[in-house]
Amino acid sequence: MRRRFAGILGLGILIASAAGLGAAPALKPFERGTWQSLLKGHAGRPTLVHFWGVTCGPCKVELPLLGQFAKDHPGIDVVTISADLVPNLPAATQSMLDKAGLSSTENFIFNDGFVERLRFEIDPAWQGDIPRTMLISRDGTVTTIEGSAEMADLEKWSGQQLGTQ
């Protein structure tokens, strides 16, 4: 009985640690079809999707500002997608997200070598320039901001979405 209990306890710890990982989500792979599931998963909720990359200078400046924005606006779903397609990147990506205060948002990393196809699913006109921010309103309207976003613009949009303006 005691052994059985210990076994169950052991399993419990395994499951709890898996659940723990869920609470502080790791980077999710962004693959073929992920964009559509992401849109479905956030349908009806104002969602900010931010594309960035660890080797992009302007991204490094913007990311902490976005971290503060996410903290200040719990009513907005903030999603980040690392769109740099480079080897051995997850650690560097996670580290930059952590430093920017974006550990607990939904964070993806491009995980398909056929990057043209991934981008085409998101926006056929997008050629890969980053940073890039897509603001998806409750009704599904998408507003794309190319390059670094002005935080004032994000504030204005979130105000409209959350009905505070």
Partner: peptide
Amino acid sequence: QINACPHH
């Protein structure tokens, strides 16, 4: 006019 990395 863009503050970004076009990579292109």
